[in-house]
Simulated assay, not measured.
Amino acid sequence: MADQLYLSLFFPNFRFDSLPATMVSVLRQFARISGIPRVSASAAYPVSFNEAPIYQRQFVLDQRAAESEDTSASIIENAVAEATELLHEDTAYEFEMKWNLWLPQPQGEIEGAELDILWKPIPTTVKFLGFGPDFDDSTFEQNGHIRVDFGLDTPWIIEDPEDEENDLPILSFEDEEAKAEAAKHIKQNIEMLLAFTLSVEKHCNISSRLLWTESGEPLAEKLIARLQRLT
């Protein structure tokens, strides 16, 4: 069953007024790995996520952005500066960026049948949340000063076709060539995840980090088990 994947980052002697600079540092590391150096959306949530955002902006990153005279707002430093212009201790600041992860795309539309698979790099959104000390009853104590939300762990796991709770189309990994192709691309996704995590550890002066899933199920064990079934 697909699970939500997070990375919690804690910083030594963290001061809230340093959040913008710290967020910029983390986003830069992500841009290095993804090759996409711009923010796609930003928002600020007061008190808790049950409240409507007090600030929200979407950025155009497709071909229209290249033709626009004003694309500078989506540059990491500018997007963070705008969203955090007024820092409030009861507010969470959210930034979205994208990277391309390999996912299987079935070729055909025969319901209930095993389909040929074409793996493609698909743009996938990652959310970065910086928490004010008073936001949602000091949720930063459990979630980190900055929490990275990778979305569902599907790109790193690709659940078995037999799993009835799996949302993916029916896939066939029966032949050795298909298994090798799946293992290759899942490993590429894992390498990107680890590269970003290690880059943050090396360049962002964190005191600790925690890669975790919403269910609490150990991610490392899931990754190893999935790759073993494909090799």
Score class of each variant (00 low, 15 high):
Gly112Trp: 05
Glu89Thr: 14
Phe95His: 01
Glu77Tyr: 05
Phe131Glu: 04
Ala73Val: 05
Ile170Phe: 10
Asp136Tyr: 01
Asn100Glu: 07
Trp156Ser: 03
Ser42Tyr: 02
Gln63Ile: 05
Asp167Pro: 15
Lys187Val: 13
Ile170Cys: 08
Met97Gln: 08
Ala183Tyr: 11
Asp62Leu: 00
Asp137Thr: 08
Glu109Gln: 06
Gly216Tyr: 02
Asp160Glu: 15
Ala31Asp: 04
Glu159Gly: 15
Pro20Thr: 06
Asp149Phe: 06
His88Gln: 12
Lys179Phe: 13
Thr125Pro: 00
Ile76Cys: 07
Pro12Glu: 11
Leu86Asp: 12
Pro53Ser: 14
Leu230Glu: 01
Leu27Val: 06
Ser34Gln: 10
Val47Asp: 05
Phe11Ser: 02
Ala2Cys: 10
Ser34Phe: 06
Glu164Lys: 09
Arg209Asp: 11
Glu159Ile: 07
His203Asn: 13
His203Met: 11
Ile186Gly: 07
Thr91Asn: 06
Lys184Glu: 14
His88Ser: 12
Pro169Thr: 09
Gly35His: 09
Asp90Tyr: 07
Asn205Gln: 09
Tyr93Gly: 00
Val60Asp: 12
Ile158Ala: 01
Tyr55Cys: 05
Lys120Leu: 13
Phe59Trp: 11
Arg32Gln: 10
Glu174Lys: 15
Glu82Gln: 11
Asn78Tyr: 04
Ala81Arg: 14
Arg57Pro: 03
Thr213Val: 06
Thr124Ser: 12
Arg64Ile: 11
Ser172Glu: 12
Val200Lys: 01
Phe16Cys: 04
Glu191Ala: 15
Asn166Met: 06
Ser68Trp: 07
Glu114Val: 09
Leu19Thr: 01
Leu227Trp: 08
Tyr45Trp: 15
Ile117Ser: 08
Trp99Tyr: 02
Pro133Lys: 01
Gln228Phe: 11
Ile146Tyr: 01
Tyr45Lys: 07
Trp102Tyr: 13
Met97Phe: 01
Leu211Thr: 01
Glu141Pro: 00
Ile224Ala: 10
His185Glu: 12
Trp99Pro: 03
Glu69Gly: 12
Glu176Gly: 09
Ile206Trp: 00
His88Ala: 13
Ile146Glu: 00
Asp134Gly: 02
Glu69Lys: 13
Val80Ser: 03
Gln63Ala: 15
Glu89Asp: 14
Asp3Cys: 06
Lys187Ile: 14
Leu115Thr: 12
Ile117Val: 15
Leu86Arg: 13
Asp167Ile: 15
Ser72Ile: 05
Phe150Pro: 00
Ala79Tyr: 02
Arg32Asn: 08
Thr197His: 12
Phe16Leu: 07
Trp99Arg: 02
Ala183Gly: 11
Leu198Met: 03
Asn143Tyr: 04
Thr139Phe: 01
Ala83Thr: 11
Ser199Lys: 07
Thr22Cys: 11
Asp160Gln: 11
Pro46Lys: 08
Asn189Asp: 09
His88Pro: 04
Glu164His: 03
Phe150Asn: 02
Asn50Trp: 14
Pro12His: 04
Ala92Gly: 07
Ile33Arg: 00
Pro37Ala: 06
Ala220Met: 08
Pro121Ser: 05
Trp102Pro: 00
Gln63Lys: 08
